[in-house]
């Protein structure tokens, strides 16, 4: 109970903080729109229509969730370090991993705003018909994908506790995940050796479930199960990683800048 409350309140306060920052708030709305616009223009140039356009719109929308998470997850702890709060988080009696999960969940939530913005942009600027076959399933799939992406961001954030330069790695993961998880390019069109990596990444399955529920057909539940399962695995890995990273940071004195 206490854990649910902790995650809930921390998530809410983090969301409040992030929506007040031009960098996290405004940019995480705009940045994916630049890519979405380019993608829409490319598909339009290629005379795509109907389902192909819808698929591109939904994919571009999910890109925003990941980009709001990947770039900020690695940066957030650097910010905490700079403002001297990272030490306070570690010094608290609550497990560090539990504090970071709501942090990255709040980023993914901000990303969900950008998902809506992208869909509206596609609808009203590019006239893409956003028809959703199974709205309830669609919403559930998006929610699960947000959680899974938050958990993937959690892994990145944890790494940056120990390594002060990890922020660069986080930003560098933005586009690879877009590409590998089949957000706009089908996984089957990627080289064969890349595909196993796609399958280990939860967004791949979340994206599949979102597409299935939007277009009808397929089995969104199977995708959701894989997505949640992988998210749980990330959580578990992150939990152990966090203990190890915090220990190492305490030995090497990397929690503070000074």
């Amino acid at each position: 109970m206490r854990i649910v409350r902790l995650i809930g309140i921390t998530w809410w306060l983090q969301l409040k903080m992030r929506s007040r920052s031009a960098f996290d708030g405004l940019l995480s709305l705009l940045w994916p729109l630049f890519f979405a616009t380019t993608i829409f223009l490319m598909f339009r140039q290629g005379n795509a229509a109907g389902p192909a356009m819808l698929s591109a719109a939904v994919g571009a929308a999910v890109m925003g969730i990941w980009s709001a998470t990947s770039t900020t997850a690695a940066f957030a702890l650097q910010m905490e370090r700079r403002q001297g709060t990272l030490e306070l988080l570690v010094a608290a009696p609550t497990s560090f991993a539990l504090l970071i999960v709501p942090l990255t969940l709040s980023m993914a939530t901000i990303g969900a705003y950008s998902m809506i913005a992208t869909l509206l942009w596609g609808r009203f600027v590019f006239g893409i018909h956003i028809t959703v076959d199974d709205p309830a399933m669609f919403v559930v799939s998006v929610a699960v994908t947000v959680i899974a992406i938050g958990m993937l961001g959690f892994l990145i954030a944890i790494a940056s506790v120990r390594y002060r330069t990890a922020w660069a790695l986080g930003s560098a993961l933005e586009m690879p995940v877009w590409l590998i998880c089949g957000l706009v390019v089908a996984v089957s069109s990627l080289p064969a050796w890349v595909r196993p990596i796609s399958w280990m990444l939860a967004p791949t399955w979340g994206m599949a479930a979102i597409r299935d529920s939007a277009q009808g057909g397929g089995n969104p539940l199977a995708g959701l199960a894989m997505c949640l399962g992988l998210a749980a695995v990330y959580g578990l890995i992150g939990w152990f990683l966090a203990r190890w990273m915090v220990h190492s940071a305490r030995v090497n004195a990397t929690l503070a800048l000074s």
Partner: peptide
């Protein structure tokens, strides 16, 4: 640790991403 991801890996993935999107579109 910053140089390689930011200035080598990211630009390359950027190129690959749009080349693949181009193929798809």
């Amino acid at each position: 640790w910053v140089l390689i991801p930011t200035f080598i890996l990211s630009p390359i993935v950027h190129i690959l991403l749009f080349a693949y999107i181009g193929r798809t579109a």
